[in-house]
């Protein structure tokens, strides 16, 4: 149970309980404002009845031709509100808007190869690994030098405009590219 509402610029004053979590990056102000000014309908917040922010998703639409798609830039739920289907609901909203409003062919996202919770969740939601991107992320700063931590999986899910599932492939985990090859 939660209030689903648009992400507002002033939410940046309230998102600490979510962003202090290690898996969630806090970007510069212009990052959020750029998303809000360009794809406000791909940015939404789940809020508890007492006004606390529970989680949010920030997305965009990008690509050319067959590559035109919705992209999940950040999806996060505060630890105390996990396993309440909030991520599932926000993803389905983002997919709906990517499909109906933007008419994209698929939705994609990047996730650290070590973030097993998120990966299995995305798989459960119908996403599959399209390719592995080397050194996509910075280190988590935990003093380890694990490659997996810095590599990302690019995961995708086709939308209704791609009925033949051309935007995904079966053995994506073996398909490795470097961070320079993706934008």
């Amino acid at each position: 149970m939660s209030v689903l509402r648009p992400f507002r610029a002033t939410d940046m004053f309230k998102f600490n309980n979510i962003n202090l979590d290690i898996w969630t990056e806090t970007y510069g102000i212009s990052f959020y404002l750029t998303y809000l000014s360009r794809w406000p309908d791909l940015c939404c917040v789940q809020e508890a009845p007492n006004g606390h922010m529970m989680g949010y998703v920030i997305g965009k639409a990008e690509g050319h031709g067959q590559d035109w798609h919705g992209h999940v830039t950040a999806l996060t739920v505060a630890p105390e509100y996990r396993r309440l289907s909030l991520a599932r609901k926000m993803m389905s909203l983002l997919e709906m808007v990517s499909d109906e409003t933007y008419k994209g062919f698929f939705v994609d996202l990047y996730v650290r190869c070590t973030n097993s919770v998120a990966i299995s969740m995305y798989e459960g939601l119908g996403y599959s690994v399209y390719r592995r991107v080397r050194e996509y992320y910075g280190s988590l700063g935990l003093g380890r030098a694990s490659k997996d931590e810095e590599d990302a999986f690019d995961m995708r899910k086709p939308l209704s405009r791609d009925p033949h599932r051309r935007s995904v492939r079966a053995n994506g985990r073996e398909f490795v590219v470097s961070a320079h090859d993706v934008s």
């Binding site: 648009p6 507002r8 610029a9 002033t10 404002l33 809000l36 000014s37 360009r38 794809w39 406000p40 309908d41 639409a61 409003t101 933007y102 008419k103």
Partner: peptide, 14 residues
Amino acid sequence: RAFSTERYSQIIDF
């Protein structure tokens, strides 16, 4: 249509 959703409301928020 895709690009145009509610930018005016964003201005007030900004």
